[in-house]
Design a protein around this nucleic acid. Structure first.
Lengths: 169, 169
DNA sequence: TATTGTTATACTCTATAACTATA
DNA sequence: TATAGTTATAGAGTATAACAATA
């Protein structure tokens, strides 16, 4: 909160008040900017997810990568990059980290000697499962104020926007 | 895209197929994770907004800060930090940058010699207005697939989630 | 020529801790 | 003591460019 008096709050709700020296609600100017709402919400959620993942020694990205690998055994690094919507170059150290922790293996592909096939180890699958359950529990708390229909609507809208954004690029 | 055959695509849509060697849809494993959908969408949108702001030589944060300052003349740096949902320390260089570009002024507050009151200059207001219009135009393209009701619902859901996330912290 | 993985580098956003000058 | 602004530092996520090996 921006620390304003109740008086200023009601003024802000009434719209512009000439000579109003108190600032209006903190994000009034950003309220209509969808990108900023997305950013604020994402940031707040990510802080929670990061905290949820901390006991598993996973970050957002390592968790996401591990989840994709568990669900898609044998995929290539470039496919993982696509799935995570980041550049190939940025998954290298990610995969290094998971491999060093023996959560995944990087296996040579006989038919294409440039490529690696990624597989989770048992340890990796187990860690992913535990982290995933913690994440889902966190999400349930996060979405407590939303009806199932609202959640569906939300993810639907997010995907539409993402698709449009990538298309515009 | 993860570069799969149409065959694999339809299999993925049908659910798990034993012995399926093709990876399923790229984000299938992440589909139910609201945090990841938020992140992906936000990232895609931010790339677009950044591109939109580039001609004005503004970044996401400098644009957001300038917008808040234009709408809230005289606010303090700590209030700006609150409005942007970042720590005080992180707005210092932001404000430095805007001040050096003569988009805002940092004025001493007579009643509190620790504080600065932030005001946009004419140049700053004009730049903000132009950038804001470009941003709104981009948003309109971004939200083209959504009905007004969906947009309202989306921002509503985002705020609910943000509030819950900050409350859980 | 195009693609897979890699290295190196840099930028943006953010947090934390410790400091100063006020209040 | 508490607050406003500051400095310094670190970490996370991402992009770009250039390269070797292979297709």
């Amino acid at each position: 909160m921006i620390g304003m008096a109740a008086k200023a709050k009601s003024q802000a709700a009434d719209g512009a008040v000439p000579g109003d020296l108190e600032p209006p609600a903190k994000d009034a100017a950003l309220r209509e900017i969808i990108g900023y709402n997305l950013k604020r919400t994402t940031h707040a959620v990510q802080a929670g997810v990061s905290a949820t993942l901390k006991p598993f020694e996973l970050r957002l990205l390592t968790y996401s990568a591990l989840t994709v690998i568990v669900a898609n055994p044998g995929l290539r690094q470039s496919q993982l990059a696509d799935a995570l919507a980041v550049e190939r170059a940025n998954v290298v150290m990610l995969v290094d980290e998971l491999e060093q922790r023996e959560l995944i293996t990087r296996d040579k592909v006989p038919t294409d000697r440039r490529a690696y096939a990624l597989h989770s180890t048992l340890k990796g699958s187990q860690l992913q499962k535990a982290a995933y359950e913690a994440d889902l529990a966190y999400q349930n708390r996060l979405l407590a104020d939303l009806s199932p229909a609202e959640v569906t609507q939300l993810t639907d809208s997010l995907r539409k926007i993402e698709k449009t954004a990538r298309g515009l690029k």
